[in-house]
Simulated scan of single mutants.
Amino acid sequence: MAYTINDDCIKCGACASECPVSCITEGDDKYVINADECIECGNCANVCPVDAPQA
Rank of each mutant, 00 (worst) to 15 (best):
M1N: 09
M1P: 07
M1H: 11
M1C: 11
A2F: 05
Y3G: 13
Y3S: 12
T4Y: 14
T4D: 06
I5M: 13
N6A: 13
N6S: 14
N6G: 08
N6C: 08
D7F: 15
D7E: 15
D8F: 14
D8Y: 12
D8T: 06
C9Q: 06
C9R: 07
C9T: 08
I10D: 05
I10A: 07
I10N: 04
I10C: 07
I10R: 11
K11G: 00
K11A: 12
C12P: 00
C12W: 00
C12G: 03
C12R: 00
G13H: 03
G13M: 07
G13P: 00
G13R: 04
A14K: 13
A14Q: 09
A14M: 12
C15H: 01
C15G: 04
C15Q: 01
S17C: 01
S17E: 05
S17A: 06
E18G: 07
C19I: 13
P20I: 08
P20K: 13
P20V: 09
P20Q: 13
P20C: 14
V21I: 08
V21R: 10
C23G: 09
I24N: 06
I24K: 10
I24G: 07
T25K: 15
E26M: 02
E26V: 02
E26R: 09
G27C: 00
G27D: 00
D28L: 14
D28M: 11
D28V: 11
D28S: 15
D29F: 08
D29A: 11
Y31T: 03
V32T: 10
V32N: 02
V32K: 07
I33L: 08
I33E: 05
N34W: 03
N34T: 03
A35Y: 09
A35K: 15
A35F: 07
D36F: 12
D36M: 13
D36G: 10
E37M: 09
E37G: 03
E37Q: 10
E37F: 01
E37R: 07
C38Q: 03
C38P: 01
C38G: 08
C38Y: 11
C38R: 02
I39V: 15
I39D: 06
I39K: 13
E40W: 00
E40A: 12
E40C: 02
C41V: 03
C41F: 02
C41R: 02
C41G: 09
C41M: 05
C41S: 06
G42H: 01
G42R: 02
N43Y: 13
N43K: 13
C44F: 03
C44N: 05
C44R: 02
A45C: 06
N46Y: 10
N46H: 11
V47H: 01
V47Q: 01
V47K: 03
C48W: 01
C48K: 03
C48Y: 04
C48N: 01
P49N: 08
P49Q: 05
P49I: 03
P49H: 10
V50K: 03
D51H: 04
D51I: 00
D51Y: 05
A52N: 06
A52Y: 05
A52Q: 02
P53K: 12
P53E: 11
P53V: 14
A55P: 01
A55V: 10
